[in-house]
Design a binder for these strands. Structure first.
Length: 502
RNA sequence: GGUCCUGUGGCCGAGUGGCUAGGCUAAGCUCUGCAAAAGCUUCUACAGCGGUUCGAAUCCGCUCGGGACCUCCA
């Protein structure tokens, strides 16, 4: 079964066929590093990390480009961006690169916590000013952009005459062009009156004197518009047209729509074959976003330090929570939902640990043919589900079907020869590949240390002796005290005792 | 106002027209010195009203509710 991807552009699922066989070029809109990442940001990066991992699993050679937006109108909350004309001492002033560095570091830290693989290339907007200026010059030469008071705008009306502007985002071009006709609820942007048409968007903005980020350009000092950076960097590293462009649904318009327009004019081809958009994370049914004032920052999530959180959540819990829903569905956040994911992940992961320790008997035949059939089917479906537009929730559902079987084998409620040697080996392989390689989950336990292991062995031994002597006071003390320390003892069916972090 | 999405059991969430995912919670049972863990079992569903169909949560229409985008935004 071939891989199918839902293409936002055609609004249908399409069979994935890369432009260059065996290779995939993938661009994902990265963070704007003027503030701290929040839970909402986690979704695209985890979603496309899984896409990247799955494509790699499918033997594609993937070049994954994810940018850092570090140019634009930057300010940091609580710090004055206005005063750079020299009243304040140098160290008191907002230094843009300091700010950018701070939030870039924080972003990278979060990605590591989430176990996201680094992209192949992580270009910055400030590092590609030249490419952006070149692209804008081309647009002017071709007559699709015009200069106005040191700023440059893209001529949407002219573009729309020959191309489908608005197709990706389902916009009606006439309405965009006559926006003033409708009741004007939209915010008035600075320099709006410079535009020939309100639908036009900025490619380059002249920097007012107090603007802290500025570069020289043919049109005077200024800074690049938001959309041009992605077009310039994607073109540079992935070519005029590439396979996958990803990002959040909220970027459909105007960001991605504009990217298509710019790149199409400059490169004479549609830039992207498959557009992929993840849905939003909501909180109380409302999108999590700065403007709604309802964000939970990742640092708050990991520490539990937020009024809406009843506890701290491990990055892997968050990752699992995101994988439990399909990436194109909205996902509603609550502390309760996350807590339930935490338990679910723990259960699944423990079953996986058990599975790793099961040693199949060579040449075991499948004594329970019906079970053998079911298990084989669940395992085979896993890849089919991922091939169907990355349906991670279904894969996880199958794993949960398998978990009781794994535990029953351990407890000898199901014989190890009930299913064939081959299927058991396949199960070990599928769990490892899907859980670790594709879903990018990893053990949350910090207890893999030899000294602790020895101490635990000792305690378990003492407890066993106490129980043999019916000295339950001592055995319960060991069990209960450990429990308070966050260590859970599990008495197995065979009389042994294992332990894990609760 | 425009474009689009969405409404599933206590909660979260899959669902390609027929065989009613999965997780969490709750209850009962098994195992256990008692627990925990594990296993087994069970309950409350498809917003409402019409229509198409032999058959609809799934397709169509209407009503009601929620959301996203139209502005920086993952």
């Amino acid at each position: 079964m071939p891989l199918s991807i839902y293409n936002s552009y055609s609004r249908t699922k399409e069979v994935f066929e890369p432009i260059t066989p065996g290779h995939v070029g993938m661009y994902v809109c990265g963070p704007t590093v003027s503030g701290e990442s929040h839970l909402g940001h986690a979704r695209p990066y985890i979603t496309f990390d899984v896409v990247y991992r799955y494509l790699t699993y499918k033997q594609f050679k993937v070049r994954y480009v994810r940018n850092i937006t570090d140019a634009g109108h930057f300010e940091e909350e609580g710090r004055e961006a206005e005063d750079k004309v020299g009243k304040k001492a140098l160290l008191e002033k907002l230094e843009p690169m300091e700010l950018v560095q701070k939030y870039t570091n924080l972003f990278h830290w979060a990605m590591k916590e989430f176990n996201c693989i680094e992209p192949s290339i992580e270009p910055t907007a400030t590092g590609h000013i030249v490419e952006q200026i070149n692209m804008i010059e081309t647009l002017i030469e071709k007559g699709f952009a015009y200069v106005q008071n040191g700023s440059v705008y893209f001529d949407v009306k002219k573009y729309a005459a020959e191309h489908e502007y608005g197709k990706l985002s389902g916009r009606i071009i006439d309405e965009l062009l006559h926006a003033e006709a409708r009741d004007n609820t939209t915010r008035t942007l600075e320099g709006q009156d410079e535009k020939r048409d309100s639908a036009d968007f900025a490619l380059w903005k002249a920097a007012p004197p107090e603007h802290i980020m500025r570069w020289k350009s043919p049109w005077g000092e200024g800074f690049p518009g938001w959309h041009i950076e992605c077009s310039a960097m994607a073109t540079k590293y992935l070519g005029a047209s590439f396979d996958i462009h990803g990002g959040g649904m909220d970027l459909l318009f105007p960001h991605h729509e504009s990217e298509i327009a710019q790149s199409t004019i400059c490169n004479h081809v549609a830039p992207v074959k498959y557009w992929m958009h993840n849905n939003m994370i909501t909180i109380n049914g409302r999108k999590m976003g700065k403007s709604y004032n309802n964000v939970i920052k990742l640092t708050e999530l990991f520490s539990g330090n937020h009024p809406l959180l009843t506890q701290a959540f491990h990055p892997m819990t968050v990752r699992f929570f995101i994988l439990q829903s399909h990436y194109r569905s909205p996902l509603d956040f609550s502390s309760e939902a996350l807590a339930s994911s935490e338990k679910a992940l723990k259960r699944l992961w423990e079953a996986y640990e058990v599975l790793k320790k099961i040693s199949p008997i060579e040449n075991a035949a499948a004594k329970d043919a019906a079970l053998e059939e079911k298990v084989k089917n669940w395992l085979e479906e896993m890849e089919q589900f991922m091939d169907d537009d990355f349906s991670s929730p279904k894969v996880l559902a199958n794993m949960f079907e398998l978990a009781p079987i794994i535990n029953s084998i351990k407890d000898q409620l199901i014989g190890i020869d009930a299913i064939s040697h081959h299927t058991l080996m396949l199960m070990k392989e599928r769990f490892a590949v899907f859980l670790e390689d594709i879903f990018g989950l990893k053990a949350t336990e910090a207890g893999n240390n030899e000294v602790l292991q020895s101490v635990m062995d000792l305690l378990i031994d003492i407890r066993k002796e106490s129980k043999a002597k019916k000295d339950f006071a001592t055995s319960d003390k060991i069990r209960n005290q450990l429990n308070q320390l966050g260590i859970q003892l599990k008495d197995e069916k065979d009389g042994s005792t294992s332990w894990g972090l609760a």
